[in-house]
Write a protein that binds this DNA or RNA. Structure first.
Lengths: 256, 256
DNA sequence: AGGCGCTTGTGAAGAGGTGCACAAATCGCG
DNA sequence: CGCGATTTGTGCACCTCTTCACAAGCGCCT
């Protein structure tokens, strides 16, 4: 049930306490807007129109306006949005006003790279601890952090008040690790292992599977190839495809 | 490793001619089904019910049946789906019957890990070439492949018939690299750089942004925290977590 | 052989997301 | 001081995706 609610009117008292209950699709786009806004800010721009920001974020401008309206943003008609203000708004909604501590479990091939990925640090997160089950890896230092044994997790989690757990272990180890994370109170997990995690209600899991992304691309590649291979195949409905078979999900030919 | 050539394939290479024009959401789930099916096959299962497969893939069983029905699969009522047959079907639809060649550009922190990620090789892809713009990195050998300068791209792409390009460069370098990939005929790109790529129509781009995933989790974490701070909302399972949560962020002062 | 339990495949209803098009609001300028 | 150019915010229609519920089909057991 989507309830329309007008989040706090301009003059309302408290500071926008109610989380506006954003559509999930909107939430997923906010970080992209945020990144684009930071770029604009670095360029010295102080305001930006929905059209301009939409182009920078690779989305439709109406969609962007609707997204921003959901979080009760204050654009100025005839002018646009104040870049700095909007950055503050989005960061606040995303809960990025504090730097959240991330625990990374699994310092193998991929985990090693994640531990060194500075995109995390620069966008609101702090990798607070590294874990691995392999004794051979415990003790290794990466980016100033020492890899600890995964059994230390509960102790360290309490000290560092871990907010998010990242799993970069092999698939077989992922579920036990997830259980351990949940046990120490972590309610948000980013899973890079190619498997389905089962977690109690209230725990959010997002999955990133690199091979799956390639397989999706493979499908489209396959489809494109077979389309060009079958010229006019008997005039079936296939050839009657309208304007574009562009993947709606991906970005496509922007501007020019 | 295991390159399952569909064993008892749906007979007739000529069959399955018309690409069924699958819903995008379905395409995105097929790889997950495929992974689950391979697990089942390794366990020796020969058939699986929609319920069972759905559980293994983490989706609703009705959704799974509808997805499979889209690709005209033949389950047996009262029995379920033939695992081997279904694997063959899905691999065929995804275009995984051939092993696609992937070019990886950007062998920095993340790219290095991707180059060594065996999940690609085991799921239908072959990393055929590595590139970087930094002369200091050219010549380095990773996983049996020598890093070449990005200017070699056009020559190598022709030799290896690259099907998919993976961009793991810094954001600033991503667009030029994408242009080069497009120029040599690549029509599918997986972009790890945190920026929007502009490509001509007909080129598919999928983006993976690791920081964005964390930011989305951060939002939910933020929301959950503010909910527990608010009056009773009915829900409950949240408070029953063992171990107790440590991370509670009280603040959410917005604006100004 | 016939009935029974199980499972698929799908129609239909509902939820959610998207994009157009336009009214409302604001600024700058003559 | 009012007008026009500009841009936001949003109602509405469309579309995709999800989920339910159930008839049809299949194999097994008696």
């Amino acid at each position: 049930m989507s309830q329309h609610r007008h989040p706090g009117a301009p003059g309302s008292a408290g500071a926008v306490p109610a989380l506006p209950d954003l559509p999930e699709a909107t939430v997923a786009r906010l970080p992209e807007y945020l990144r684009a806004l930071h770029n604009l800010a670095d360029s010295g721009d102080e305001t930006v129109s929905s059209e301009g920001l939409a182009a920078a974020a690779g989305v439709n401008s109406a969609k962007l306006r609707k997204d921003l309206s959901h979080l009760g943003s204050y654009g100025t008609r005839g002018v646009g949005y104040d870049v700095a203000l909007l950055i503050g708004q989005i960061e606040s909604v995303l809960g990025l006003t504090q730097r959240r501590a991330v625990a990374l479990v699994g310092v193998g091939n991929l985990g090693h790279a994640l531990a060194g990925y500075d995109g995390f640090a620069s966008r609101g997160f702090r990798i607070a601890a590294l874990f691995d089950a392999d004794p051979a890896r415990v003790g290794e230092e990466i980016n100033g952090l020492v890899v600890q044994h995964v059994d230390e997790l509960s102790r360290v989690a309490a000290e560092e008040s871990i907010a998010i757990g990242v799993i970069a272990t092999p698939a077989a180890a992922a579920q036990p690790v997830a259980d351990q994370l949940v046990a120490v109170g972590v309610t948000s997990i980013l899973n890079f292992a190619p498997c389905v995690l089962s977690v109690p209600e209230g725990v959010d899991v997002r999955k990133v599977d690199l091979a799956i992304e390639l397989q999706i691309l493979s499908f489209h590649e396959h489809r494109k190839a077979s389309l060009t291979a079958l010229p006019a195949a008997g005039g079936s409905a296939l050839t009657a495809l309208p304007g574009g078979l562009a993947a709606s999900d991906s970005q496509e030919a922007i501007g020019t």
